[in-house]
Amino acid sequence: MSAAFLLEQLLNGVQFGVMLFLMSAGLTLVFGVMGLINLAHGSLYMVGAFVCAWVSGATGSFWLGLPAGLAAAAAAGAAVEILVMRRLYDRDHLDQVLATFSLILIFSEGTRWIFGNQPLYLNIPPLLSGVIPLPGDGGYPLYRVAIIAVGIVVAIGLYLLISRTRLGMQIRAGEADREMIGALGVDIKTLYTVVFALGAMLAGAAGALVGALQSVQVGMGESVLILAFVVIVIGGIGSIKGALVAALLVGLVDTLGRAFLPRLLTLVMPASDAGTTGSALASMAIYLVMAAILAWRPKGLFPAHG
């Protein structure tokens, strides 16, 4: 095992974490401002990926597909907020779970209806298709570096948006006291729609960016959705900072677990068993970490509300 290998795995962990951050930022924002559990967040991720892939395929350009994917996810988010979510804000979490679970079914089959049964093709743009050499004879895909950069930009952007703009002030006010901001004359309906669409757009961005790395297919949002929930719960619901820290933690734990657990176990058991046991443990690792953190800090690492 070389230093380059270790470096490459660390980068992988960070990149995976950044992707999770894009997913969970929207989720945690929506929960913080509207108190809404949205299981259909993964569906918006899927919408971003499908529209990006379809437009890229039709026009031949990823750079047209990407904004189209973002716009479609934001539009789908706004539509969902206006048609469904709006009626659920004053309900308990259970009704929200059932409603958004139904939305998953509707989105999945709807997507399959519109885009067909086979996975779609989406590849990284030529501009970003190179490999950056690492020390030793390693290399790291430029595209993954670009994803990390996007994540940093989004994190800074969200920070500025929330701390420096009028919209951000309303969001903070909404998190602190939902009734109050209505009284202050803020158009709460529009605010909620905007926040939800913003969250959807971030999910769509994650979907479109990741779609170029993997397979654009129905159901792609579900595994990511669970991970995003793990992230926002570890980070403290409603906290963007918490989401960032937790996303990186989950990304690193998952990646390093997969990379090193099977090797470590060969020290204590035969290689054939170590492979399967290590892989089983690696797939459980993030849930173990989450349970441990919640047992220690029941409101996550950065509780947003006191």
Binding site: Q9, N12, R144, L256
Partner: peptide
């Protein structure tokens, strides 16, 4: 290497293969 069922990111595995 045995990977997680339904896994979609293989960066860690690809690094191991390179190694």
């Amino acid at each position: 290497l045995f990977t997680k069922v339904g896994q979609t990111d293989y960066a860690a595995e690809i690094a191991a293969i390179r190694d």
